[in-house]
Write a protein that binds this DNA or RNA. Structure first.
Length: 580
RNA sequence: CGGGGCGUAGCUCAGCCUGGCAGAGCGUCAGCUUUGGGAGCUGAAAGUCGUGGGUUCAAAUCCCACCGCCCCGACCA
């Protein structure tokens, strides 16, 4: 273990909040001198930031190895052709950085590595005797994000642990998935993170199912719901929900009636006019799916979930229709579309089943219909779940109620099936002499994002509060007056003593005023701090202060190392996975 | 890509509306004083005012174009 002397380090702390940073974790990483920006989504790790990053990586490695995964390192630069084999060159076209070599060969900077690892396994694995195999790497990924933001949370270049399992059959793949799922729980616990596991959509990865590991935070980019009674939790992209009671509205028995609503287009305006809750309205949105117009109907208080809609339609391309298309299809300007009399397919949200007395557009400028009965008046092509769940919906698994939260996705595990192994020829010869594709899983951890998520979840007004397991150093020794000889001597001995028992020490021996050093110590947030000063030494003692609680112990100099050691062990235990 | 904001000293920002010597606080450097929660005094260094063009006797300030950064949205393993 080494000693970090503040005065000989590069720890450029900032008194003020940099203009570029919005959320606490980003501000604190900059202020504590952990990172610096080169450009949008591009960051340099300074020495202390790198130390913390390496600790996260070490935890990830240890848990991957424990679970039997094998570390490899693949290229970040890939020939374009590998990506064309699976069709993902097209699919991920916009997120990939593309470059050419001197011979004008087209290359991409890898945004992920399914194709590359599967190609490897296709060449090197040929028998069921070699399975299962689980390979991972910790490597820099490149994605041309539409909008990098929040520092390391969404960067153009970031470090990711990506792992891939290859099994002979579904049972084996299930076991591999389970084992990674459990390894991930351990990883995040050891990083001091509380990660919520949610059911997730598989997106461009493909595959059958997946779970995301979410760190709850208001600044999180993902919406999710969790049940207040059972363990159900899901990303909003995927979340199902139920209505506890069928809504009933006024005038349900009457026939549809056209009402003049001049200039009223939005749900709020129309709901206000009818003095009804937005839920009484039926929103009719015109989409173009694979070139053909369709109408999607959802309750007025909900939004269309385009992922669900695309799945319901089985469409490859899906986008909102433009104003001209809407006018052609509905005969009315934007804002007055309704389902009655439309001749295009109508996909109706399942939550609209039994809707009576609803208000819809009349397919005519400045007019709406009231007393619409979805079953009686609308030619429903298909009922399907195509809307987002919202706070207060019923849980699909129990009698509980769903709560809406936001989270940062720090890990994602997928069951991939045989999509990649078939396309890239990752086949093995079974016991029976038959060739079969490997059943795959893939598993990602955003390493740099995880580091920042820890800070987002663990800080106060004064600065970072590092979990003991990933702090850039474990104990800060703060020399209050560097001109007081006895203090200097004692601090020096303590630093040596801590080092000798294997503790990582940051020694703040700068010629700064005490206040400056105290403020910097809180900002940087190492778990324990030892203040060595004249006042304490007069009584033969130092102060041992815990960053997370602010609790300060007065400890005799002789037992300072021992006490610090014991305290640190406690703090580390708090991050240990259950049962250890 | 659409909408909004910003770009002046290392950092945070004022000055711009109403054109006329480029400023403050913090930081840095030197000296003195001070030493338990971002000290005090004295002095100093430090800016092509994002870039280019235009208007004007004169542009940080007005106009045009471009670049960069941040936020919201769309999008996203």
């Amino acid at each position: 273990m080494d000693i970090v002397r503040w005065s000989r380090q590069l720890i450029p702390t900032l008194r003020e909040v940099p203009q570029e940073a919005e959320i606490p974790s980003h501000q604190l990483m900059l202020r504590a001198g952990l990172i610096r920006k080169l450009g949008a989504g591009l960051y340099t790790f300074l020495p202390l930031g790198l130390r913390a990053l390496r600790k996260v990586e070490r935890i990830v490695r240890e848990e991957m190895n424990r679970a039997g995964a094998l570390e490899i390192l693949m290229p970040a630069l890939h020939p374009k052709e590998v990506w064309e084999q699976t069709g993902r060159y097209e699919l991920l076209r916009d997120v990939m950085f593309k470059v050419k070599d001197r011979q004008q060969r087209e290359m991409v900077l890898g945004p992920t590595h399914e194709e590359i690892v599967t190609d490897l396994v296709a060449h090197e694995v040929s028998s069921y005797r070699q399975l299962p195999v689980n390979l991972y790497q910790i490597q820099t990924k490149f994605r041309d994000e539409i909008r990098p933001r929040f520092g390391l949370m969404r960067a153009k270049e970031f470090i990711m642990k990506d792992g891939y399992s290859f099994d002979a059959d579904l049972d084996g793949a299930e076991k591999s998935y389970r084992s990674m799922y459990e390894a991930y729980q351990r990883v995040f616990q050891r990083c001091g993170l509380r990660a919520k596991i949610v059911e997730a959509d598989t997106g461009a990865m493909g595959g059958s199912s997946s779970h995301e590991f979410m760190v709850l935070a208001d600044s999180g980019e993902d919406g999710l719901v969790e049940c207040d009674a059972c363990s159900y939790a899901a990303n909003l992209e995927r979340a199902e929900s139920v209505l506890r009671s069928a809504p009933s509205f006024a005038d349900a028995e009457k026939d549809p009636e056209k009402i003049a609503t001049p200039g009223l287009r939005t749900v709020e305006e129309v709901a206000g006019f009818f003095q009804s809750p937005p839920a009484r309205l039926i929103k009719t949105l015109i989409y173009v799916a694979d070139g053909k117009p369709v109408a999607a109907l959802v309750p007025g208080n909900r939004d269309v979930n385009e992922i669900k809609l695309r799945r319901a339609l089985g469409a490859k391309a899906l986008e909102l229709a433009d104003a001209a298309t809407i006018a052609r299809v509905t005969g009315a300007p934007v804002g007055f579309a309704g389902p009655v009399g439309l001749s295009i397919p109508l996909v109706v949200d399942a939550k609209l089943r039994g809707y009576r007395g609803a208000v819809t557009g009349a397919n005519e400028a400045d007019a709406h219909l009231r007393s619409v009965d979805i079953e009686r008046d609308v030619k429903v092509t298909e009922f399907a779940d195509i809307s987002f769940a919202i706070e207060g919906d019923g849980c699909p698994r129990c009698a509980g109620t769903l709560r809406a939260k936001r989270g940062v996705e720090v890990g994602h595990v997928f069951k991939l099936g045989t999509k990649y192994s078939e396309q890239l020829g990752a086949l093995y010869l079974g016991e029976d002499g038959q060739k079969r594709p490997c059943v795959m899983g893939c598993y990602g951890i955003g390493v740099t994002r995880t580091l920042q998520a820890v800070i987002e979840q663990s800080h106060d007004d004064n600065g970072i509060i590092w979990p003991a397991t990933i702090a850039p150093a474990e104990v800060e020794v703060l020399l209050i007056n560097e001109q007081h000889a006895a203090s200097v001597e004692t601090a020096g001995k303590l630093v040596e003593g801590l080092k000798n028992v294997g503790i990582e020490v940051l020694f703040d021996e700068r010629a700064e005023r005490p206040g400056v050093k105290f403020k910097d110590a809180d900002l940087l947030g190492l778990p324990l701090r030892i203040n060595v000063g004249e006042r304490g030494l007069a009584k033969g003692s130092i102060e041992l202060r815990a960053r997370h609680s602010g609790e300060t112990l007065v400890v005799p100099v002789e037992s300072a190392v021992e006490t610090a050691c014991a305290r640190l062990a406690e703090l580390k235990r708090a991050c240990a996975p259950g049962g250890e």
